[in-house]
Design a protein around this nucleic acid. Structure first.
Length: 322
DNA sequence: AAGACGAAAGTGGTTGA
DNA sequence: TCAACAACTTTCGTCTT
């Protein structure tokens, strides 16, 4: 008699809370619980049903031992938001045979033929799916150009789907919306990329991109963490080949600056650049203002201005502090 | 000669009437 | 809708290393 860890109790379906905890948009506080059996996301605080057509990713069978649990599995590719039909399409076979290999009767055959035709038409030819198919290929192109990892692409794809449902894409270019979703996804995952960088990689200008991004925030009620200069440091540091002591010192400088309120209302990119500049001087691993300004996509003047402020307020003596 | 500095004018976005 | 405003950029001349 084995009743091991792998076995699933009861009907094999249970309520579990998802790995990611998110707050309810309605009451703000309560953590959202995923009820797998019912396919719903429910707020633990106010009981609001947030989404009622989740796909049950659990097993539909019972396992009585761990071996059995391992041996039986669900088949098929995982659900993907970057594929326009989420990779979950049903395909009608092209063979005119039934499941046991027998030939179909002529009337059945013509029925299947019609179904197949309409399936193909409905799948790629509905306007939303056509839009999605185009958007997903643009998303793929953009994110590979920016070197973004798959989780961020998937998140961006999810955002784009939501924006289609809310009809935000109407009257705007698909490219602009895709770029905005990607930019938002980066920020949500705390891997911010400068707006300029995203704009350059796409064929969208910065202004349009910013407009779409703000629209996205408003319409989808996204809560996006404020981008902090610290989030840029690791990427800039690797582009500038900075040593890790310099990186650490940079973060220290930024934390100190924030503590005395120097960072309010300032461009995080400029702050990051200035902090790197100061740290590189302090630890005698100098980079020119120009080099730093270039990777941070700000001007030398901005680097200088932030640098002067920080040095003055933190009373850092850059000349003899090694 | 390269890098740093600073002044002055211009730009695009936000805010408040 | 418009003007005022702060932050940032562009440009350019000058100083420092």
């Amino acid at each position: 008699m084995e009743n091991s860890r792998g076995a699933i109790s009861g009907n094999g379906k249970s309520t579990r809370s998802d790995g990611e905890s998110h707050a309810c948009p309605e009451c703000g506080a309560g953590s959202v619980v995923e009820d797998i059996a019912r396919g719903e996301s429910v707020c633990g605080g106010c009981g609001l049903v947030l989404s009622d057509h989740r796909i049950d990713t659990g097993a539909e069978w019972r396992a009585f031992s761990s071996e059995e649990g391992d041996a039986r599995s669900r088949v098929g590719a995982p659900m993907r938001y970057t594929i326009h039909d989420k990779g979950l399409s049903t395909v009608i076979d092209w063979r005119d045979r039934d499941i046991s290999g027998r030939k179909l009767t002529p009337s059945r055959r013509s029925e299947i033929y019609r179904l197949r035709k309409w399936q193909i038409r409905s799948r790629v030819h509905s306007s939303m799916d056509r839009n999605l198919a185009q958007a997903m290929s643009e998303l793929e192109r953009l994110s590979s150009q920016l070197g973004l990892p798959k989780p961020i692409r998937e998140l961006a794809a999810l955002l784009y789907r939501k924006s289609i449902v809310k009809k935000l894409v109407r009257g705007r270019s698909i490219e602009a919306m895709v770029a905005a979703c990607l930019y938002a996804a980066c920020r949500i995952r705390i891997k911010p990329r400068p707006l300029d960088e995203v704009a350059d990689a796409s064929r969208v200008n910065k202004k349009k991109l910013g407009q779409c991004y703000r629209l996205l925030l408003r319409s989808l009620n996204l809560r996006i963490p404020l981008s902090s200069p610290v989030h840029y440091i690791s990427r800039f540091a690797s582009e500038l080949r900075l040593s890790s002591p310099v990186q650490l010192r940079t973060v220290e400088i930024l934390n100190q600056s924030r503590a005395i309120g120097l960072t309010i209302g300032r461009d995080p990119l400029g702050l990051a650049a200035a902090a790197i500049y100061i740290a590189s001087i302090m630890l005698d691993d100098r980079r020119t203002q120009r080099e730093i300004a270039e990777v941070a996509r700000v001007t030398e003047v901005t680097v200088r201005n932030r640098y002067k402020e920080i040095v003055a307020k933190l009373k850092i003596d850059t000349l003899n502090s090694v």
